[in-house]
């Protein structure tokens, strides 16, 4: 059996070839999103996408792209404060959905008196702590283990751009260049643009920079890469074109 992870295209209800299901005695098989286990031993995909099998972790899941975000635990998201309640904020994660809650005390070194004052419409970078299908999601802007913000909290300035959920996941991959085939941000950085980004799993990417021009270029690069599903070479071309337009 290969040690590298493999991928196949699956549609909902497809039969999965039993030979590709990893079989390791020591660890139980872990099923990721998009797969359903029908006892005793049948595994059926429930969405269409790329089936990824990772024999090392003894896991398999379906990598797919969608538009509406459904919160799941430990996701990093970019939300928008909808309104303030007695001891939490209502946060809008995706439009036309019910709001998530963000307790006032879930900020770094927040107490009853020193909690941050956030206006409606303010953007925040937060982690989903609770995602139950029958309840509104709950967020936090502080790591519950260390008590530090670790980059979470209110976002000031900059601009958010809407991207597809699959693209957001690819951006968030530790090795987005190799696994996700994304090089656009690095290329832009190589061109000498100074900017920072924050990616929300809910299909939002925030770009901040001192110059609005740079924000617009980075935003356009990301959106066009996403919409055109560009490969690495096309990304190189795109960055060159955008840099030329800027001058």
């Amino acid at each position: 059996m290969e040690t590298q992870s493999q991928s196949f295209v699956v549609l909902p209800g497809d039969a999965i070839d039993p030979s590709i299901i990893p079989t390791t005695k020591t660890k139980p098989l872990r099923l990721g999103p998009g797969l359903r286990h029908i006892p005793p031993s049948e595994i059926v995909p429930t969405v269409s996408g790329k089936l990824i099998v990772d024999p090392r972790k003894n896991s398999m899941w379906v990598e797919y792209n969608s538009h509406r975000y459904i919160p799941s635990q430990n996701d990093l998201i970019i939300g928008q404060i909808a309104r303030n309640a007695a001891d939490f904020y209502y946060v809008n994660i995706s439009p036309y959905n019910s709001n998530a809650t963000l307790p006032h005390l879930s900020f770094e070194s927040a107490t009853k008196k020193t909690r941050p004052q956030l206006a409606p419409g303010q953007l925040i970078y937060a982690r989903v702590t609770l995602a139950n299908k029958h309840m509104d999601a709950e967020l936090e802007c502080v790591s519950s283990t260390t008590g530090k913000a670790e980059g979470l909290g209110p976002i000031t300035g900059g601009m958010v751009f809407d991207i597809s959920l699959g693209f957001a996941r690819r951006l968030l991959m530790a090795k987005s260049k190799d696994e996700g085939g994304l090089q656009v941000l690095e290329l832009l950085g190589e061109e000498g643009l100074a900017f920072e980004t924050a990616v929300g799993r809910n299909g939002k990417v925030w770009v901040g920079s001192d110059s609005p021009k740079i924000v617009i270029i980075v935003g356009r690069a990301l959106k066009e890469t996403d919409e055109g599903d560009l490969g690495v070479d096309a990304q190189k071309k795109l960055v060159k074109r955008l840099m030329r337009d800027m001058r």
């Binding site: 928008q80 303010q122 976002i155 958010v160 609005p212 924000v215 617009i216």
Partner: peptide, 15 residues
């Protein structure tokens, strides 16, 4: 209609 966030409003204007 989904309202744009404060950041977006300020940025669009600033740009």
């Amino acid at each position: 209609e989904a309202e744009p966030s404060l950041n977006e409003k300020t940025f669009v204007l600033q740009a």
